[in-house]
């Protein structure tokens, strides 16, 4: 334990009692710990408790109803529909964001004034409020005046009711999220690309490897830890999609964009079914935890195999 302190740290210069020193150090950690306990851990436990009750926020007492909330959710159709929507959104959002992000990273991994500027322009939306972004896309995909339909008309195609058609609305939301997220993926991929030693490319081109082979055999494998990081973080944040749904579609048309968090919000604050909403929250949280654990497990494995990848690349 004291090894991490370095030499001399544990010796009490002023010879105060040790417990008193501990207390003083602990006091510095206390505000943060108290806040996390009150606003993260207690609510988490409380949500878990509420999920076994039929509380509706206005009722003064909570009645314990066991697993009833979970049973109702898991036997109803809506749960699977919402889960399907959330996963469709998440999977395509992640695939497109990372795919396009990687392409942009390969294109823009050049240091020059112009490319630096372009990188900033592409990266910027990551930091712009999703509400504002949604508003802009609401206008772009407006069926009467939107840019998208103007473009279709210009190309001689039929205009589409993007946001009022159950078949296209979810895709509009995916496009919005991809547009906002590619910059971040690009920046992280570029950081990854710059971490790959140039010797690997030199060595392999002496061996006669083509650019495509180099990409497949060197770039992709060596980017895999970063890709994994991006997949998991993007996956988790995609699953929490809420703002764009709330601003652009309100879960409609015909509930075709009702994603998990929107449903939770609706259940808790429009229908006031606090107990059932809590059950949904707990199931949602378990999914996030499982994903995080999966990432930690896989990334531990990856770092072991990484060495083998590199030696394979160098000596095929």
């Amino acid at each position: 334990m004291t090894g991490t302190e370095g030499p001399g740290a544990a010796t009490n210069i002023k010879r105060r009692p040790k417990a008193w020193e501990y207390m003083k150090d602990f006091a510095f950690a206390l505000p943060a710990l108290a806040m996390l306990l009150i606003f993260i851990y207690y609510p988490l436990v409380n949500s878990f408790y509420l999920s076994f009750t039929n509380w509706n926020m206005t009722r003064p007492n909570k009645e314990f109803i066991g697993l009833d909330n979970y049973e109702k959710l898991l036997t109803g159709d809506t749960f699977y529909k919402v889960l399907g929507i959330t996963f469709t959104y998440t999977v395509f959002d992640v695939l497109l964001t990372l795919g396009i992000g990687l392409m942009l990273a390969l294109l823009f991994n050049v240091t020059s004034r112009f490319f630096n500027f372009m990188r900033s322009v592409i990266f910027m939306p990551h930091y712009i409020s999703m509400v504002i972004v949604s508003m802009v896309f609401l206008w772009i995909f407006n069926s009467q005046y939107g840019l998208m339909n103007e473009l279709l008309k210009f190309l001689g195609l039929e205009p589409v009711d993007w946001l009022t058609n159950p078949k296209t609305a979810l895709w509009v939301l995916i496009v919005v999220s991809v547009w906002k997220g590619v910059g971040f993926a690009m920046i992280i991929f570029i950081a990854g690309l710059r971490g790959i030693p140039l010797e690997y490319y030199e060595a392999s081109s002496i061996d006669g490897a083509s650019k495509w082979t180099q990409f497949r055999k060197i770039t992709l494998p060596l980017l895999s830890p970063i890709t994994l990081f991006l997949v998991v973080t993007n996956f988790i944040s995609s699953m929490q999609v809420f703002q764009s749904v709330d601003v652009m579609t309100n879960g409609g048309p015909l509930e075709s964009t009702k994603a998990m968090v929107y449903w939770i919000y609706e259940m808790a604050f429009a229908e006031f079914r606090t107990g059932r909403a809590s059950a949904l929250i707990i199931m949602f949280f378990i999914m996030i935890v499982l994903l995080t654990v999966l990432q930690m497990y896989v990334s531990r494995k990856k770092s072991i195999t990484k060495g083998r990848f590199i030696s394979k690349c160098l000596h095929p």
């Binding site: 609510p43 409380n46 808790a268």
Partner: peptide, 9 residues
Amino acid sequence: VPDQVTFVP
């Protein structure tokens, strides 16, 4: 733990 998990309590 995201906001969406803690907001009700």
